[in-house]
Design a protein around this nucleic acid. Sequence first.
DNA 1: TTGCAACTGTTATTCACCATAACTGTTGCT
DNA 2: AGCAACAGTTATGGTGAATAACAGTTGCAA
Lengths: 237, 237
Amino acid sequence: MATSAGPRARYREQTRTEIKQVALRQLAEGGLPSIALTRIAKELGLSGPALYRYFANRDDLVSALIRDAYDDMAAALNAAVPAEPHPSPRNLLYTLARCYRAWVLDHPHRYLLIAGSPLPGYSAPPDTLARARAALGPFVAVFEHADPQPAVAALVASMTAWVRDDPDLATWVRGHAPTAQTPEAAGQAMAGAVLAWTRGHGAVSLEVSGQFEQMGHNPRALFEVEVDTLADIFGLD
Amino acid sequence: MATSAGPRARYREQTRTEIKQVALRQLAEGGLPSIALTRIAKELGLSGPALYRYFANRDDLVSALIRDAYDDMAAALNAAVPAEPHPSPRNLLYTLARCYRAWVLDHPHRYLLIAGSPLPGYSAPPDTLARARAALGPFVAVFEHADPQPAVAALVASMTAWVRDDPDLATWVRGHAPTAQTPEAAGQAMAGAVLAWTRGHGAVSLEVSGQFEQMGHNPRALFEVEVDTLADIFGLD
DNA sequence: TTGCAACTGTTATTCACCATAACTGTTGCT
DNA sequence: AGCAACAGTTATGGTGAATAACAGTTGCAA
């Protein structure tokens, strides 16, 4: 495997991992701004500039954390799928959505790292885009067999146009939703997946960033309503 | 008015405002981390520590920006209400929601400042809470006359329990929704308002933080679907 | 009108952190 | 056996937050 590319490469990978672990702890303790190369180095018994052998700079380290977080989340979601034997689309959505929320609540800082605010107008690098797609993939499968209400027609149309314009996207959608052969079907699946994303993000990001902290309601109930009504809108079985 | 509390206080307020303006520009240009007291001072022809006469520290300045943003947004929303003469609840919701999105798109950085990620577990100071409520207020009025679907029953129940436990909240809700006398009615209004908040935030925060950047769909269509279906769920006229 | 207390500003200094340069010892591979 | 790549070091420079110590200005009360 790629792990046995010589002892040096292995040691290097090991050190990179240790650095990231310390960075994650600092992230958990004080948020993004308190990830400090100097302190990471000190904690590892290294001194300052040594870290630059492993990461080009602070941003590079943070990017690595973001990539890992995406991968981890995507893995969790994909792992959740086969758990349910022959799920109805509705139950599959429930499973995925709960898995999503569970991951976020387990890794709040990492989620804020992913979803947190870059600059307005910022465009994620393409590899990040691909990773985000990997997390969205399982949701696409949910909506391939659906009977959406008229209220989403405009959104489905917008998504359909996008699928038509972007062949890569089209093949990607079909990879997750094999029966979505027409642009319309693919657009419908994308509409469902993106709605799941925005709704999940809305509910969960406010929960995890502490905005519900002083509020005496049940965040889980809120989340479930969003998922439930999403299933309704798409007429999932 | 409060502005004529002596020439000194007036000059002081003026300087504070200038500082905040420069800070806002820096925020727009490079995000939160590039708000730098030293550079603000330089730009104003002052030198470093002078700013500490006006703000206790960097966090204090940022807090002031957050407070201003909340106030500004709340003002925009409240100003949007009387525009529509005798609106149906549904049309009122549309008006408010579009106003919300318009404000966010007009002030993306300030929105990210408000909604952006503090630490998980962070609790906003009470005055911020009050300001957030002021922005939520107009939405409460929308949902006082509604006929919610069974899918939201659990959420309404959760909100009702909260209203029952928190007399301050109860009076605040009645301030915006005079007919919501029972805890149930108030809980229903809160459920609608909070759902509007989370949905709006989900759609708009992803849009404004650039997550839709490379995606060929129409963010407006997405937003409208969310608002439309929210109105449906609550059976708004 | 005078005088002082509060206010506004200054320079000097410390500390934390990112980043680069220049250099040295180690090690794995040919 | 030997060298090139690698992993680490100290020294240095730059930026920014924050505090201390000090000095000029001004509103206002006696």
